[in-house]
C-alpha cells in the first residue's frame, strides 16, 4: 500500500467515525455529548429509546446502504467498462422500485419479498439493457440506461400520481429491516472482496482474456449478479438513490488509484460516509419534518457529477 493510500484510508475512517458521532447527536432534538453518554448508560430513559429505536438503526442502515451502493457502482463500472455506469443510471434500481410498487399494490410485502422483487426488477432491466448493439457503444449504453430508468420512473408515477412514494427515505426503519440489511450486507461484502480480482481482469479485452485461459463471460455474469444483489438490498429499503454509485468510485480512484482491490473497499467506506451525511442532512434540515435522502443525493450528486465530467482529465471510456 502506498503512502497516499494509507493516508486516504486513515482520513476516510476518521471522517466516518466523526460523522457517526454527529449523526447520533443530531435529530429533532440536538444533543450535547454528555447527553449522548447519559443516553448510553441509562437504558430506561427516553433518550435511550430515541437513540436505540430511531437514530441507531437509521445510522446503521444508511451506512450499509451507502457502502453497498458504492461497491455496486464500482463493479458496474468494471463490468460495463464504463466509468459512468452505476445501477441507478442504468435503470437497474428503478426496475426494482417498479416491481416493489406493483407487488405492494397486490400484497403486503415483508422485507425479504421486497428484496426479491428488487432483485427481479434489476434482472429484467438488465435483460432489456444488455445486448450486443448497446454494449458496443459506451455512450449508447448510458443513454439507453437513462431512457430505461426514466421509463420505469414514469410508469411508477402513473400509479402513484399524487403521493410521494414511500421509498426514498430511511424514515421509520425498523431493527428487523436493519438486521436483515446487516446480514445481507456482510454477505455482500465478503462476496465483493472475494470476486474483486475479476473486476481487474475485465480491464482487458475478451479476446486477450481468452488467450490467457480466462473466460470473460463467466466473470461478467458473476459480477453482474453481485451488482444486482448489492443494489437490490438498497432498493428494497430506500428505493433508488441516484449518482452515489458513479461519484464515489470515481472519487476513490482519485485517492487510491485504479486497482479494484483498493477501489472496492475504499468505495465502501466513502459510500457509507456519503450516504450517512446525506441522510443526516435530510433529517435535520427541516426539523421536525424531513426530506427524502434520494432528493438530497440528487441535488448534491448532480452538481458533483457535472463538475466531475467537466474536468479535462476525466474520461468515461478508454479508447486505446
Amino acid at each position: 500500500m502506498t503512502a497516499k493510500q494509507k493516508y486516504s484510508y486513515t482520513f476516510v475512517i476518521i471522517l466516518l467515525l466523526i460523522t457517526i458521532l454527529f449523526a447520533m447527536l443530531l435529530g429533532t432534538q440536538f444533543w450535547s455529548l454528555s447527553r449522548l453518554l447519559a443516553a448510553f448508560s441509562n437504558n430506561q430513559g427516553n433518550d435511550f429509546n430515541t437513540l436505540f429505536t430511531i437514530r441507531l438503526p437509521r445510522i446503521i442502515a444508511s451506512l450499509l446502504c451507502g457502502g453497498m451502493l458504492a461497491m455496486a457502482g464500482a463493479f458496474s463500472q468494471a463490468v460495463f467498462r464504463n466509468r459512468l455506469a452505476d445501477p441507478s443510471i442504468l435503470g437497474l434500481t428503478s426496475g426494482g422500485d417498479l416491481l416493489i410498487m406493483f407487488g405492494s399494490l397486490m400484497f403486503t410485502l415483508n422485507p425479504f419479498a421486497k428484496w426479491a422483487l428488487a432483485f427481479l426488477g434489476g434482472v429484467i432491466a438488465l435483460h432489456v439493457l444488455v445486448n450486443k448493439t448497446v454494449l458496443k457503444s459506451p455512450y449508447r449504453l448510458i443513454i439507453v440506461g437513462i431512457a430505461l430508468n426514466l421509463t420505469f420512473v414514469g410508469i411508477q408515477q402513473l400509479f402513484t400520481a399524487n403521493s410521494i412514494s414511500s421509498t426514498g427515505s430511511f424514515n421509520a426503519i425498523t431493527w428487523n429491516q436493519t438486521l436483515m440489511l446487516l446480514v445481507f450486507g456482510v454477505i455482500g461484502l465478503f462476496a465483493a472482496i472475494f470476486i474483486t480480482p475479476w473486476a481487474n481482469y475485465l480491464k482487458m479485452s475478451d479476446e486477450k482474456l481468452a488467450t490467457i485461459g480466462v473466460s470473460a463471460s463467466t466473470m461478467r455474469r458473476g459480477i453482474l449478479f453481485l451488482v444486482l444483489y448489492l443494489a437490490s438490498n438498497v432498493t428494497s429499503i430506500v428505493g433508488t438513490i441516484p449518482f452515489l454509485g458513479i461519484i464515489v468510485p470515481n472519487l476513490a480512484r482519485y485517492f487510491v488509484g485504479h486497482d479494484y482491490q483498493t477501489i472496492v473497499p475504499f468505495s465502501m467506506l466513502l459510500g457509507a460516509w456519503t450516504l450517512l451525511i446525506a441522510d443526516t442532512f435530510s433529517r435535520v434540515v427541516v426539523v421536525p419534518s424531513e426530506i427524502p435522502v434520494a432528493n438530497v443525493m440528487t441535488v448534491i450528486g448532480g452538481i458533483f457529477l457535472v463538475l466531475m465530467l467537466e474536468r479535462k482529465d476525466f474520461y468515461g471510456v478508454r479508447q486505446s
Binding site: M204, K208, T211, I212
Partner: peptide
C-alpha cells in the same frame, strides 16, 4: 493458454 501465448498487434485496455 499454458501451451500457446498470443501477442496482438494492438492491445486494447479499458482502464489503467
Amino acid at each position: 493458454a499454458q501451451k500457446i501465448a498470443v501477442v496482438a498487434q494492438r492491445n486494447r485496455l479499458y482502464d489503467e
